[in-house]
Design a protein around this nucleic acid. Sequence first.
DNA 1: GATCCATGTGTAATCGATTAACTACTGCTC
DNA 2: GAGCAGTAGTTAATCGATTACACATGGATC
Lengths: 321, 321
Amino acid sequence: MKDVAQHAGVSTATVSRVLNGHAAPTPETRERVLAAIEELGYRPNALARSLRTTSTQTLGLVISDLLNPFFAEIARAVEDEARSHGYCVVIGNADESAEQEATYVRTLLDRRVDGLLLCPATDDPSLVREVSAGGVPVVLLDRTVKGATCPVVRADGSEALTALARRLVGAGHTRIGVIAGPPNTSTGRERTDVLTGSLGGLAQVVHGDFRQESGSQAAAKLLDGGATALVAMDNLMGLGALGEIRARGLQIPNDVALAVFDDQPWFPLLDPPITVVAQPTVEMGRAAARSLLALINGQQPDDVRLTAKLVLRGSLGEAEL
Amino acid sequence: MKDVAQHAGVSTATVSRVLNGHAAPTPETRERVLAAIEELGYRPNALARSLRTTSTQTLGLVISDLLNPFFAEIARAVEDEARSHGYCVVIGNADESAEQEATYVRTLLDRRVDGLLLCPATDDPSLVREVSAGGVPVVLLDRTVKGATCPVVRADGSEALTALARRLVGAGHTRIGVIAGPPNTSTGRERTDVLTGSLGGLAQVVHGDFRQESGSQAAAKLLDGGATALVAMDNLMGLGALGEIRARGLQIPNDVALAVFDDQPWFPLLDPPITVVAQPTVEMGRAAARSLLALINGQQPDDVRLTAKLVLRGSLGEAEL
DNA sequence: GATCCATGTGTAATCGATTAACTACTGCTC
DNA sequence: GAGCAGTAGTTAATCGATTACACATGGATC
């Protein structure tokens, strides 16, 4: 910057003003400065600027698993929305591990992100408290924690799950296997509670960890137990369940009915196509980014609760008539 | 930091030395400082540190499309490798747009990443030159650019594609539709060249843009043209092609054979499972991260060329006997 | 006891920007 | 022509760390 100033025959203060669009410099000086910048190929050091202004124009996003297309889509949406407001997003991958999540959150705070979007790995509120205590705006995404005091953005699948339950029961299934998420996540618990609640005593629940492998294992256990219908509570566990069903040579929907929470672009391509509870991922990501930006700007955004929809495609068989 | 120093009754220099594991401070002083840090909940400001040391312990990764599971896997691998060396990764999503790519690259440079991993959207070398000129280490990943002067990490699919061609020809296909990537990307061109080369005059090529929608359109055009076999040059276009095949009620492999470049966890679940050319994504990501770290440490890593493998699953029909 | 070395700590410059406070100049009014 | 307002630009403090150099202390050496 000093070089630029010298080159243009002005002080660094003037260069800075030109860069930041201040009113002061004359068009003529501005011209000279811009020319010098161009000529020297100067690019301002964002670190120095942030250090001085205490604003990095960056949001932190800590997600549970980048390989889960659900989160990848969310990340993408967050990024789009953030960028359209001049913010950058730094993504941290927690791998469904509370420990790694904490590490990432701290790293991001150390780098002074202006705000944090968090998909908490567990419902333990201590990490969120720690961040809030540090005065950094936080918004929770997809999942919440116990006694959360920050805005939460998530999808409500109750209606869809209730409708799903009605159909399964209506179709005469009496042993319905539920491949549930970890009980220490809000989504894991809530979805399962709603579904089993609506199923009366017909549900058998096995907990997985939101990953493919656990989906296969849970499916195996449930099928061994005589389940005639399976509901997987996220797309990766759904993938695992599908694998297990195929491995056993079972036919959907005749041998076993299947529904999955979270839609995927390839679900319609299966034979039969898979019935799902689809979450509005893009809207969730955008809404979360908007809430966080509002928080950063000193507003108090409300919680956002979007609605997940049941999409019937055929994998429930007669239950869908 | 000043507070900590005061609290411990030492100078900021000593605090800094404790933090950085210098030899100097006595165990006793160290103890006092650590206690003060603990008590005040002090966390060092990474911006300030980086400004002073000119090192951010951060790698930039600009990928073509986060929603493409191929790149998501790569991103994940890069991140793992980087973290194990104490580095953080900032991901930028270029959305297959050269413009957005350039924006992201510049943003990352402004933030003084220690090095850059780039999956270039086009084979135009100017952006890479710009970065190199700025003295920032770069490694190209998956794709290369014309006259690249930096290390490149990619997968070689020649063998697999040649084998694939042999099978298709052997099975008697005479109109083989190739859903190619954009001709201005190295992977788009090379894969297509190898395949059409081995197919003699039997190939009909339609170019897509590595996205699902273009895959459907290309498939439609090729099927209209009487193709009895389709090869999609990346997984998203493969997804699109599958959709088009299903939409027309065609059976794989009887009505049309299909092979896709890039494997996906759900390909084995289709009926029939899809034959693919599988790239070693995880190894690519790790290797790229390693090369970049080596470059940062002043070494001159060689290009890495991993091998993609043909995985036969049945979607080629008799061609696979 | 003077000299020297080793060791632990403090002082202050530095990284590259922003910005409050100040100065210099121009032009206007009375 | 003195006084004043307004504008353009400069000087220097600041953000929060690192680190070269200076300094103080204590013990070993002759």
